[in-house]
Each structure stands twice: as C-alpha cells, then as structure tokens.
Design a protein around this nucleic acid. Structure first.
Lengths: 213, 213
DNA sequence: GTCTATATGGTGATAGAC
DNA sequence: GTCTATCACCATATAGAC
C-alpha cells in the first residue's frame, strides 16, 4: 500500500475514532477535529466515510500480513512456526491497536448501507484478504498436524477459536496505558502458550514449549 | 428478570437488529417494522434507544448466568467443572445468538453519548455483571490450579483468552443456518477441547478429556 | 489543499388522535 | 396501547471562496 503522508495522517485519526466510537457513531467532523482540521480536508482525500473505513481496514490487514508472513520462516518444527505466527499476530495487534480494532469491527459489520459497485468490490476484496489471513494459519496448522505435532478433529474450528482467543485481547488490553515492549511480549507469550499447550496440566511434557525468534 | 410479553417481543426484535446492524446503525423504526408495528409501540415500553439496548444486554447476561451457574455443580474434578461451564457458555451463545452478540457489542462500545444518571448507573451495573461472569470462570480456574490440574502463569490472561476463543464463535458461526442440537454440541465440545487440551499433541494423556453432564 | 457555508436526508423523541 | 404527524437535531456530502 502506497500512501501519501496526508492520507496516512487521516487514516491514523480515523482508526482511533472508529475504535473508540465505532463506524456509525463516528462523524467525519470528529475525525477532522482530531487532526486539528475540518472535514474539507478529509473529503479532499476520501470520497466518503465508507471509503475511509475501507482504507483503514485495508491498512490494518496489510500490517497483519507484514507481521505474520515473515514468521512463517521462523526456526523450529511446524508447530513452533505456528506458535511464532500467533505471537507475531498478537504483537502486531498490540502495535497497531486502533487499526486492528477496526479490522475486527469490519468482520462484525454486515451492512454498510448502500454501496457503489466499486465499494462493493473493495469490500469483497477485504473479506477475501481476511480469509487469506486465516488460511495462512490453517495451512500451517495442517502442516503441524501432518507432522503429528497437533491434535484437532476439526482444523477450521481450531484455527478460528485460536485466532478468536488472540483477537479478543483487542478489547481487554489497551496498549496505550502500559506499552512496555517486554510486557507486550510476555502477554503474547502467555496467550500463545495457553492456546498451544492448553489449560490442562501436562504431566509428561511434550516438546513445542518455546516460541521461535 | 420479569418481563411482560410485550417487552419481550420488543427485545427479540431489537436484539436481532442490533446484531445485524449494530447499535448506532439501528433505528427504532426498523425495530418496530420487524414486529409489524411502528415506533409508537416501542416508545410506549422504552423511554429511549439506550434503555432498550441496556435491557437487551441485561437479558443477554441473565441468560448466560442461567446457563453457566448450574454447570458449576457438574460432576468431575475442578477442571472438568470448568470445561462444563465453558461448554454451557458456548451452547448458551448459540441458543441466544442475537442477545449474546449484543452483549459483546456492549463490551466494545465505549461511548453511548450523553447518559442520564440513571442510565449511567445501569451501565455500571451491566459492566459489573460482565465482571461477575468472568469471575465465575476465574474462580473455577483458580480451584483447578490449586488442585494441580491446570497450568497458567497468569490466570486472568488465561481466562480472558479462553472466553475470547469461545465468544469469537458469535461472529463466525450462525446457528440459524444449521441449528441441529447435535451439531451445536459437537462444535462446543471441539472449542472446549481445544482450549483445555491445547493444540499440541499429548504424548502421554493426562485426564480431563471429557466434559461433564 | 483547506476552509466555510449549506443542501439534503435521516433519526430520536414527543404530542395527541383513536 | 398503538397509531400518525411532527419537531429538532445531527451527519454526510457538496459548492465554492481563499
């Protein structure tokens, strides 16, 4: 995604507003006011509020892919790679909290009102990119299962539950209050460890306890 | 919660609308239209849209407590009881999908605009009841940990991640499409099993594989 | 490029007939 | 108790000055 500085600044303001108040409750006026501007500026760069929302969502997805795709080359077995991807996902959500909150909001919003054909297509592309993101984890989980490292009768349910556990942190954890990097990594590790190892005590430890890189 | 039939009907319609479109995008007109009525009927029973939302949320929480509290008396050790509570939670979300979607929406909504003192207090009570619900799981998890059945460095993070994994199903699973009871139970079991046992293969199986009741 | 109007439509809430 | 009619307000989006 290439973005001018002007657009980037608008996206940051919009992401923060959408996160705090939600898409429908956010007016273009408050987005502009957050930048110390008026809505003329916003409408010069974006045709409509929906287009603005879509661009925030698009950047949010790009940031996720940028964080998770490198983790696929993490060292270790297939399960350790999956854990590294989950860890990268969690850290990216902390780092880009507002944008990723908007992504989750996009998942939940079924109706945006009437969309132009172009907007409809952009929405379809966003949905497709979310599917692709989930596929990243599903493929890695499949590899881990083929290697006998992973138990899951239904891989699709497992991955969705897993990502849900991570993504829920967008709601209860607010990185702006306590944003030490070490704290964030400890939190990410705690979530990943729970999801990989499970709640139940392991009497005889199997491998795959550590996260890669 | 005592509810007249009239109020109950309004709540059902409102829950469906809030789920599909979100609080802000839902107009009282469409809630009324869903009942084949006009908004005069809604405003006769509810002073404002916020009050209506709060009542949907309140009923959603009541339904959750009604489902999970009995599960605390499930047979088995402390971890099996926790699993039974999770299973009950999942099934309650499937059963009352619209209401629980609204509850999750309530967690995310930070700002409702200006609230009267009474509304402010009702919101505080709703937040408190959500905390109480989480405490139910946290206490049970603590009991399981004291019994040596559960590993989790941070119980609070573990419970939040756990509930997040379950609650995410509100977004991707739509019970109205395929609502066979057996399917729902299989899905609930799959999620609970993943969260309790973890992704990683267990070479030597410890106990706590079955869900109670 | 950014601003200040302003047109336009929709929504929460109320008043009062029936 | 439920309806219709209406008010007041707010938000999206546009037009045009600077």
């Amino acid at each position: 995604m290439e973005l001018t500085q002007a657009r980037r600044e608008i996206l940051e303001a919009a992401a923060a507003c959408f996160m705090e108040q939600g898409f429908h409750a956010t007016s273009i006026d408050v987005v502009a006011r957050r930048m110390g501007a008026t809505k003329g500026r916003v409408y010069h760069h974006y045709q409509s509020k929906v287009d603005l929302f879509f661009d925030v969502h698009r950047l949010g997805m790009a940031l996720l892919f940028d964080a998770v795709e490198p983790a696929r080359q993490a060292p270790g077995d297939a399960l350790q790679v999956l854990a590294a991807m989950m860890r990268a996902h969690a850290l990216a959500m902390f780092r880009h909290h507002a944008f990723e909150s908007v992504v989750v909001q996009g998942v939940q919003l079924h109706r945006f009102g009437a969309l132009t054909p172009r907007q409809r297509q952009e929405l379809d592309e966003l949905i497709a990119s979310r599917d692709r993101f989930e596929q990243l984890f599903k493929q890695q989980a499949a590899a881990a299962r083929d290697a006998g490292l992973l138990q899951a009768p239904d891989l699709s349910v497992a991955v969705k539950t897993l990502l849900g556990g991570l993504q829920w942190s967008l709601i209860w954890y607010r990185p702006e209050i306590d944003d030490s990097q070490a704290t964030q990594e400890r939190l990410a590790d705690a979530m990943v460890n729970l999801l990989v190892q499970g709640l139940a005590t392991r009497r005889q430890g199997s491998a795959a306890g550590g996260q890669g890189a």
